[in-house]
């Protein structure tokens, strides 16, 4: 995947993941005084919210991608960010009060192992929380883009089969990871886009599966897709709403 440049990622997904992070941290019950771990922090959308709530010195973060780790460290001085993957977290048992993964479970190679590891590093009775866009139900922030992509090319990729993206998936994964007191919910965000161009441009940056798809089209294909998106969207300014499935459980 073309997960490379943090600034591009922010322009692409950050416009939705930053407001999501505020709601997700609240929903997970993050409070001042807690030690927290951000699993798969990316360039640090959730990290920023955690720093606001508990202070940088109480926040630790991991991501397997060195460019994201570098970006998160630069943006959040005092947060200990290291390069590591969710399936094998580099921390001792029961280290944290709350361990969170925002928009990560569907990219894990082994989601159950990742959630089990999140539970292991959480203190007894502490909270494990995760959220993933509703990609199966068409509630993700990119759903209109993918609808247009399939209108133009029925063979376009499909993100709706990834783990965790269907209602109830996250709860089942938590049960398989032997977490307790599982609570499922959903979190919605609404983002205003001032113009079609402002909405479209980040899709051309090659970020994630959507960016990869655009990058592999020829000029004519790209134009066809862009114009199909324009047809489907309301006239600017317009709001894009997105919904994420969320789960919280105790270790």
């Amino acid at each position: 995947m073309a997960f490379v440049v943090a600034a591009d990622y922010d322009r692409f997904m950050g416009r939705y993941s930053v407001p999501l992070a505020v709601s997700f941290a609240d929903w997970a019950g993050v409070q001042p005084g807690q030690r927290v771990l951000d699993v798969g922090c990316g360039p640090g959308a959730l990290t920023a919210r955690l720093v606001e709530v508990v202070g940088a010195e109480q926040v630790s973060a991991v991501d397997p991608s060195p460019p994201f780790v570098a970006a998160a460290r630069e943006r959040h001085p005092g947060v200990e960010v290291v390069t590591a993957g969710a399936e094998r977290l580099p921390h001792g048992d029961g280290t944290f009060d709350v361990v969170l993964a925002q928009l990560v479970v569907h990219f894990m190679t082994d989601p159950v192992a990742g959630l089990r590891e999140m539970g292991r590093v959480t203190r007894g009775g502490g909270t494990v929380a995760a959220c993933v866009w509703d990609l199966a139900g068409g509630g993700g922030p990119l759903s209109l883009f993918w609808r247009a992509a399939h209108d133009v090319d029925p063979g376009a990729p499909d993100e709706s089969l990834r783990p965790g993206v269907r209602e109830g998936d996250l709860g089942r994964l938590c049960r398989d990871a032997r977490l307790d007191t599982i609570v499922s919910g959903s979190i919605s965000v609404t983002v205003r886009h001032p113009s079609f161009e402002q909405w479209w441009e980040p899709y051309t940056l090659g970020i994630g599966p959507a960016g990869d798809h655009v990058a592999h089209l020829d000029e004519a294909g790209r134009t066809m897709l862009r114009e199909r998106c324009r047809e489907l969207l309301p006239s600017a300014p317009f709001d894009v709403s997105a919904t994420a499935w969320a789960v919280r459980a105790t270790s």
Binding site: R35, Q58, S60, A84, R88, L89, P90, G92
Partner: peptide, 20 residues
């Protein structure tokens, strides 16, 4: 859950790292 605040990074942040 009170930890002494220190300038720079809290020692616990380094101490918690383990072999993955």
């Amino acid at each position: 859950m009170n930890h002494p605040t220190s300038p720079g990074i809290d020692p616990w942040l380094r101490e918690i790292l383990r072999c993955p």
